[in-house]
């Protein structure tokens, strides 16, 4: 395997070795119209981290994730996964889109959605065997949904749908998990189940990145924080970055001083 190294923006700066870095983003800019939605963002996700991408509404959190994955086009920037171009590393990535981004009326059953996570193993015409189904059922069991395998997906509650999406990601058996708002609009039991699964993934040495909107739970759930408001505001371990000053910088006037005092780690 060739090492892909990224030069820093000034050509004279030393070349980085990113082979141990699950996800590295350099100079990522995305634009939907004339205004950039994400501007020149650098991001380095350390191995084994549980990282929350936080920032106000419209800060470009989901956009950052989608552009890094190539789900939407980027204007500029480089993305490496374990030091390699992302196209060669798709097998090591699992992505959980926002639950609301798909049509839950689609004619399919829960088990079929989880089997989609095995697409790279099955290929175009590979037969779904008993072992694949057992694998999918085991993933459903990990999120507490083993009894729902044959349900039509439209019959699930929001929290159950989110767990099915997580089960699909588990079926991918990836090293890097990218989740877009996994806790949005889910019930307390689902939130607990998801956190348990994510922490188990971290304990297995995998890396987890979540777009997250609930500042109150950041310190409980995550080890690292990436503060974004179109540009990168700050990044690092929760204790260092999740502070009053940094949140003020990211959210500007949108949070009151009292809110920030209550939330911030320091």
């Amino acid at each position: 395997m060739t090492q892909l190294k990224l030069a820093a923006q000034e050509g004279a700066a030393p070349v980085e070795d990113l082979s141990d870095i699950p996800l590295a983003i350099r100079g990522l800019t995305v634009s939907y119209g004339s205004d950039p939605a994400v501007f020149s963002v650098d991001m380095t996700v350390p191995e084994g981290a549980m990282l929350a991408v936080i920032g106000p509404n419209g800060a470009g959190k989901s956009t950052l994730l989608k552009a890094a994955l190539g789900v939407i086009p980027k204007l500029s920037g480089l993305v490496t996964v374990y030091g390699q171009p992302i196209a060669s590393q798709r097998r090591r990535i699992a992505y959980v889109p926002q639950r609301a981004s798909v049509d839950w009326d689609f004619p399919t059953r829960v088990i079929d959605v989880v089997l989609m996570g095995l697409y790279r193993d099955l290929g175009l015409l590979g037969r779904v065997r008993r072992s694949h189904r057992d694998q999918a059922r085991a993933c459903l069991a990990r999120v507490g949904m083993e009894g729902f395998a044959d349900r039509q997906i439209g019959q699930l509650s929001g929290g159950q749908q989110q767990r099915v999406f997580l089960a699909r990601a588990l079926a991918q058996a990836a090293d890097l998990y990218l989740l877009d708002e996994p806790f949005a609009g889910v019930d307390a039991a689902t939130e607990k189940a998801i956190v348990t699964v994510l922490k188990a993934l971290r304990d297995e040495g995998r890396t987890v990145v979540c777009v997250h909107h609930d500042l109150a739970t950041v310190t409980d759930y995550f080890s690292h924080v990436f503060l974004l408001n179109r540009r990168k505001i700050a990044a690092g371990p929760v204790a260092k970055v999740f502070t009053q000053q940094m949140l003020q910088a990211a959210y500007g006037g949108r949070l009151s001083g009292g809110q920030i005092d209550r939330i911030a780690a320091s």
Partner: peptide, 17 residues
């Protein structure tokens, strides 16, 4: 398979390549 996948969840389909 890819038709069904991308019809249901295009973002996920793209993340698979």
């Amino acid at each position: 398979r890819p038709l069904a996948l991308s019809t249901f969840d295009e973002g996920f389909a793209r993340s698979l390549g």
